[in-house]
Nucleic acid binder design. Sequence first.
DNA 1: GGGGCGAGTCGAAGCGCTTCGACTCGCCCC
DNA 2: GGGGCGAGTCGAAGCGCTTCGACTCGCCCC
Lengths: 335, 335
Amino acid sequence: MVTLAEVAEHAGVSASTVSYVLSGKRSISTRTRERVERSIEQLGYHPNAGARALASSRSNVIALMMPLRTDMYVPVMMEIAIAVATSARAHGYDVLLLTGDEGPAAVRRVAGSGLADAMILMDVELDDERLPLLRDSARPAVLIGLPSDTAGLTCVDLDFVATGALCVEHLAGLGHRDIAVIGEAPAVYERHTGFAERTLEGLRGRARDLGVRLLHRPCDPGYGPTSATLARVFDERPGTTGFVVQNESAVEPLLGLLRQQGRAVPEDVSVIAVCPDQVALQASVRLTSVSIPAEEMGRRAVERIVAKLAGDDADDVTLIAPELTVRASTGNAPG
Amino acid sequence: MVTLAEVAEHAGVSASTVSYVLSGKRSISTRTRERVERSIEQLGYHPNAGARALASSRSNVIALMMPLRTDMYVPVMMEIAIAVATSARAHGYDVLLLTGDEGPAAVRRVAGSGLADAMILMDVELDDERLPLLRDSARPAVLIGLPSDTAGLTCVDLDFVATGALCVEHLAGLGHRDIAVIGEAPAVYERHTGFAERTLEGLRGRARDLGVRLLHRPCDPGYGPTSATLARVFDERPGTTGFVVQNESAVEPLLGLLRQQGRAVPEDVSVIAVCPDQVALQASVRLTSVSIPAEEMGRRAVERIVAKLAGDDADDVTLIAPELTVRASTGNAPG
DNA sequence: GGGGCGAGTCGAAGCGCTTCGACTCGCCCC
DNA sequence: GGGGCGAGTCGAAGCGCTTCGACTCGCCCC
């Protein structure tokens, strides 16, 4: 391993000068800077991360806490993770991958050891057990998701309440009076996952405002559960003409089942999904959807973290406004 | 931040004694050890990661290089990543998340800076540009995937050649003489991704041996491309009765399309998939499949890395034998 | 009863950086 | 012409650990 001292010797300057060339914290003459840069290049020098962290008390690492479970929104999680990693690198940070199963202990460990300067948390529950620790911690944190009480926290999320409202509005505007919601797996609601609860809140609120009947049914992933859920819906509300789907793995099964039952989309039944654009476009009917801006969520979270590490200590909630794209799966209610 | 020196003072011992309690590298009396452990507990001490890395030249971090692209096997990638993170923690390591877009530069940076002690690489191409660097590097590395030339490298992968062979064998054994392969996206083959090419090799080889006709068609993700690919297949080979699907996003569309065409599965057409068990079980027909053991791949990669970090410097290739599970989507060829 | 040995503990050095204070030197200004 | 100032550079200290050598002490053995 090449050290800074070796670079200094090679360039004929002191170690501190090399350090200042690297950090730019003091002015260096062009002549010296170029000489040092040439030595760095020639020797293939990379600053030792541990030494740098120890001396500066900055690791230049951001921890990302991902859910361990893979029962929901896998592509969204993955896209967020990749966006976080990519944006972090663009700001000079690396990303440490933590899984949610370590829980609060991971927060303590990472904060205490200086492994990371800050953390980003995904899969936030309404009353998440990691929150008290984050509020106390000296290290900045950003949540991707929204707990019940956001006081003292910085959050980035899609505005899922508005998302739910938007879906009902769109369907109601087309004349649908009986709307069914195919939701996430029951387990997702049982642990009070923020986005699922908030979407429901938005759906119900607007349905009430507009005098539309709303039936919500959680749905385990896959064809079988979707089929059972659909049967139950038509059993309880035979007049259902509008569907809101917030469950990626139910999308294609639902479309296939409706086709089999001879219900045309959108002539007989309208379907709107809350999902990434990619899913909406790859389905067998091009879906009207509210997109989940995973890349933007990851990127914005990193931007907030970087700002906080640079001294901005405001806590705030960034809600991304939902965008509804009308495609081929929604139309006027029949009759 | 609490330091080791503060723990030492609190416990009334020297700093080195605390260090030896932590590492267990020298014997410590039970009395002293318990006193130190109590102080650590009471003060909430966490060793500083940077200082530890600097002094020991070990970061206890494993770098995981993931593909940036999300055009294939997202759930598999995600499951591997989670398995790597979980197993790494079980062995006392943390995981640094790198994306593939930094390429060889990332390998140099991580190795040179001591950010990580070792690395795991995913999404390996047959002639991957990162390989020469890995062969030279002093730091251990494990590939999840298989390049053309494995000399000087340690790899873990499903035996995709055997996987391909197994699929053809199963269908041929049921009397199918015309088999079509719905493959990954064209881009996956264009960049010579190891697993895709190897599966094809296995499929073709065994088809030749058994005198079965094989038609391979790459397929972009989604319903539209699957539909077009299927039409092309039946156009070129109207007698096709067996399908091998190695493309997760084509599975449900394919089943739906066959149903629409009035082709019963498995009475008229047999379908076998190469995919995680979860996908096979959630499809509209319970699929006969060769499973992709993502969790095992991630775990084994970590085990090999940990062994190498402990001094085992053997290079070897771990090929996981494929397992075929017969479910409801394959049966005797018609007629 | 003295020598040797292992268990247990300590002190100091060193890992490779950053950063602070101090120094030199040339220029500009009154 | 002397004082002040900013640009440019250096040396030393210090960040919080690990690890090596050395020391003490009690026990066991011949």
